[in-house]
Design a protein around this nucleic acid. Structure first.
Lengths: 200, 200
DNA sequence: ACAAAAGTGTTAAAATTACACCCATGG
DNA sequence: CCATGGGTGTAATTTTAACACTTTTGT
């Protein structure tokens, strides 16, 4: 029973979401990139296991984790050559991506085990929950963010650019999120974007 | 890490779904009704664990299980007084409810642990997946069934009677399901209902 | 003929999606 | 004043939900 984490970080300058990876130190798949994962300890909570995976395998500081949530459980017989195992997939928001390996969602290297499949499946699910699940949304945006970031996050996660107008209206309906009067120039040109802020 | 099963059987004569329960033989909650559950064995698949729970704790024959599926994983710290544990909730369709204790979804006794909460949460989820997930739908209806059964199943799972007309159209859109020319009198009076049949 | 149950037809309401057009800023 | 990005308005489409009305059977 392992917990595998999709560590998501929104890279503002690259305008896309990057995924935190580790390099496997043991067989099987030694040397190949993989999702950070740990075996679930006895009586350990899922979020604790996920945190352990992030700090231990990617080098993320505990304080840089902005949110954790459950995605799905994978139960395929051939996912691990060592025998049938279970994998609980979790998402985690990470505020800084300094240590560890980070790859764009659209340019992933070959991953160990069935991790590629896990990423693909989870990406679809998470794309559907974005702006519906406040915890996930907030973990990706941070406390305050311009609309431009929301556009980039949506585009990066869903794989295609959203309609800006519709997204703007969608944001108005997100519980716990409100518009501020503030504007900020997110790009070098063009109209400045509204700043959105999560209630505390 | 336990697997807890919502054993669902559609009782045609009672026109409702009943839930299979066990009586706990050990502390804690000794003597109280509970969802059939087992500890997940090393390398055991979820469906195997669920089957083991049904056969061992409710007395269901393996051949009477019409389908098994995953619902969600519960990870609440206080769910078990013995310490933090994880519970993977599964649904299972059961074709005959002869041995074991079966209770209507709407008249459940007090259950051990947080099983009442599990049932409530899963019921909401399953109600949403009915007629969308063919595996779940088919496990409840059986290979062939009149529209009347679909009405009863929907009413029993969602808690309120569906619009017959809309449900009829919904069934037309279910993948793998088709109408037959056959009609059957499901009630003592009224127009006979169309029989639906799953492909294969 | 009447009540009960099943189906069909139609409409209303809501949620998604698409797109035209106006606004604000940098160069 | 023009290119670029942000925002509003509006319409088309699709999905859900509601409800009136017709059909078929037993009593």
């Amino acid at each position: 029973m392992s917990v595998d984490v999709l560590a998501l970080h929104f890279d503002r300058s690259a305008r896309r979401i990057v995924l935190g990876l580790t390099t496997r130190t043991w067989e099987p798949f030694r040397g190949e990139p993989a999702l950070p994962g740990v075996l679930l300890g006895d009586g350990e909570r899922l979020r604790d296991a996920a945190t352990r995976a992030l700090t231990g395998k990617v080098g993320v500081a505990g304080t840089d984790i902005s949110g954790i949530g459950q995605v799905v459980t994978f139960d395929e017989p051939n996912r691990d050559p060592r025998g049938p195992t279970l994998s609980i997939a979790m998402w985690a928001g990470v505020t800084t991506a300094e240590s560890g390996v980070w790859a764009s969602l659209d340019e992933l290297p070959d991953l160990a085990f069935d991790h590629r499949r896990i990423v693909d499946d989870c990406r679809t699910i998470l794309a559907g929950e974005l702006w519906r699940d406040p915890a996930l949304s907030r973990a990706l945006t941070g406390q305050r963010f311009p609309t431009a970031d929301a556009v980039d996050i949506t585009a990066s996660l869903t794989g295609r650019a959203p309609d800006r107008g519709n997204l703007n209206r969608t944001l108005r309906g997100v519980p716990g999120l409100h518009r501020t009067d503030e504007r900020v120039a997110a790009r070098s040109t063009g109209r400045p974007a509204v700043v959105w802020e999560w209630d505390d």
